[in-house]
Design a protein around this nucleic acid. Structure first.
Length: 345
DNA sequence: TCTGGGGTCCTAGGACCC
DNA sequence: TCTGGGGTCCTAGGACCC
């Protein structure tokens, strides 16, 4: 599948999440480049470091997006335009990358502004002019209004932010419930969520879509074990313990099913997490075929002195796991695996 | 737009308690 | 024996974002 598409490719209808097959059909001269995720992480870190020089409060949203709280930095950086120009120049000189910047009185409007002139743009919305600036734009530019909400709004003849800002409350309440009127605030650019730089991870999981739908319980179990191994290794790498395990399946009709269970004791070991996930799979999968299987952990906490509470079996697993992790760190994550996971390769 | 994989957040319904 | 109203917690599903 396509992770990201150049603007040239986008002109042919190729965009993120397009399958390679479809992409090639739409754009025969497409040039495919294998992703280098480690490289992107490194560069992302460099960019975030530059941003850290412009504000003490930086909220990283994804590998390529961040919010900066510039309140109180006017003496240092000047106006929003000045800061925006400076940030773009600093990132360019540190990494060679061009970026788009949006400046505004809220995260909501700043984000929309950043997207207004891509790539390589700088858009500042003056405080007080948010509603006017937003009015002609499609409601879909508002973060949180996705395809489903857009189609509901379309039925109400609400197409632009201006339409939404002036929509009757009762219509919105009927279709969106209590949060309906809040949408009007968003459409006027009113948003007071703070820039939050203390984001802690809430969940960690892995899932895979299968080439062919699989019904065989044993095959599903083996796939699940592989996923659990990856998840538990990530938990240990991040020093986290999980309390809740969620199994996710998607059937041949694309219906997704989730089942979760709480562990008796938080864990970062494959053994207890797999046992929980396996039990859920046994209860849930009744012989039908599935096209996706995944496992996710949540209710995460910091690593405590967990080993103190281990029973004999877990103490043994912990010892073996520690040795295996040492090998993974030294020779790569694939350096060691379970015999059961080799069979299907 | 025929549908990946990593996440976060919200909602509704039911259990349970006072 | 039947039952109000409110709060909290849990679970499952789904919308949404990049």
């Amino acid at each position: 599948m396509i992770c990201a598409a150049s603007y040239e490719a986008r002109a042919f209808g190729v965009r993120a999440a397009t399958s390679v097959h479809v992409a090639r059909a739409r754009c025969p001269n497409l040039i495919l480049i294998p992703p280098r995720h480690d490289r992107y992480s490194d560069v992302s870190r460099e960019v975030m470091e530059v941003l850290g020089g412009w504000s003490p409060i930086v909220e990283q949203v994804s590998v390529d997006e961040a919010y900066l709280d510039l309140n109180g930095t006017e003496q240092l950086h000047g106006s929003l335009e000045d800061a925006g120009r400076g940030i773009r120049a600093a990132v360019k000189s540190a990494t060679g990358l061009t970026i788009s910047v949006g400046g505004a009185s809220s995260k909501l409007v700043a984000k929309i502004a950043a997207g207004a002139e891509k790539p390589n743009g700088l858009t500042v919305v003056a405080p007080g002019s948010e509603a006017v600036w937003l009015a002609p734009r499609k409601v879909g530019v508002i973060p949180g209004i996705g395809p489903v909400a857009q189609s509901v709004l379309r039925e109400l003849d609400i197409l632009t932010c201006g339409d939404l800002a002036n929509a009757p409350d009762d219509h919105l309440i009927r279709r969106f419930g209590d949060r309906g009127p809040d949408l009007k605030l968003l459409a006027r650019g009113i948003d007071d969520t703070p820039v939050d730089d203390g984001g802690e991870r809430k969940s960690l999981g892995r899932e895979m879509t299968l080439d062919d739908d699989i019904a065989d319980p044993e095959a599903l179990e083996t796939l699940l074990l592989g996923l659990v191994e990856e998840v538990s290794y990530s938990l240990r790498s991040e020093g986290l313990l999980a309390r809740t395990v969620t199994l996710k399946l998607k059937d041949a009709e694309f219906q997704s099913i989730t089942r979760q269970v709480k562990l008796a004791q938080p864990s970062d070991l494959a053994g207890p997490i797999f046992e929980a996930a396996r039990a859920l799979l046994e209860k849930t999968a009744r012989g039908s075929a599935y096209r996706l299987i995944g496992v996710s952990t949540s209710d995460l906490g910091e690593d405590e002195q967990l080993a103190l509470f281990d029973g004999a079996a877990q103490a043994r697993e912990r010892t073996i796991t520690a040795a295996a992790d040492t090998m993974r760190r030294k020779y790569g994550e694939d350096a060691i695996t379970r015999a059961r996971l080799l069979e299907d390769e």
